[in-house]
């Protein structure tokens, strides 16, 4: 996890940490379930006080980006399911598109394709 903070910045340090971790979660650099460094460790690494990292983590937790388990640490939340969902949907869309493409090439009708899909979907479960 890469975090760079500036002492010169007008933005408070905990906000800088918050913003950078959030960005890494949103861009999937930090994956759901991934363990974040402990507040104390992060404070040590960044050469800042513990209360600052604590505040950043608290805000991340309040906004649902991370969750913490007492005695274990803080983890990246599953809560950005929507995004994961969106990403998956895109993949499905693409795969379906290629299926449609192939169907059209050999002249399979929409109804026929639907039937096939229903069959496969049900058979699979």
């Amino acid at each position: 996890m890469q975090i760079i903070i500036s002492n010169q910045s007008k933005e408070p340090i905990y906000r800088q940490i918050y913003a950078q971790i959030r960005k890494q979660i949103l861009t999937n650099e930090l994956k759901a379930g991934e363990l974040l460094p402990s507040m104390r460790q992060l404070a040590k690494d960044l050469d800042i006080s513990i209360i600052t990292t604590k505040r950043a983590y608290e805000e991340l937790e309040n906004d649902g980006f991370i969750y913490s388990i007492v005695g274990k640490g803080s983890f990246v939340s599953e809560q950005n399911k929507e995004m994961i969902l969106e990403r998956k949907m895109k993949v499905i869309e693409e795969q379906l598109m290629s299926a449609i493409q192939n169907s059209k090439e050999i002249g399979i009708e929409l109804e026929e394709l639907k039937e096939l899909l229903t069959l496969l979907y049900k058979g699979d479960t």
Binding site: N7, P12, I13, Y14, D47, I48, S49, I50, I51, T52, K54, R55
Partner: peptide, 23 residues
């Protein structure tokens, strides 16, 4: 203190002015 203090306790003239989180 910039680097390490979590809380600051400030006294002036024998009186407690504040104890606050640094940020």
């Amino acid at each position: 203190l910039d680097r390490i203090a979590d809380y600051i306790t400030f006294i002036h003239n024998g009186q407690h002015i504040f104890t606050k989180e640094y940020y």
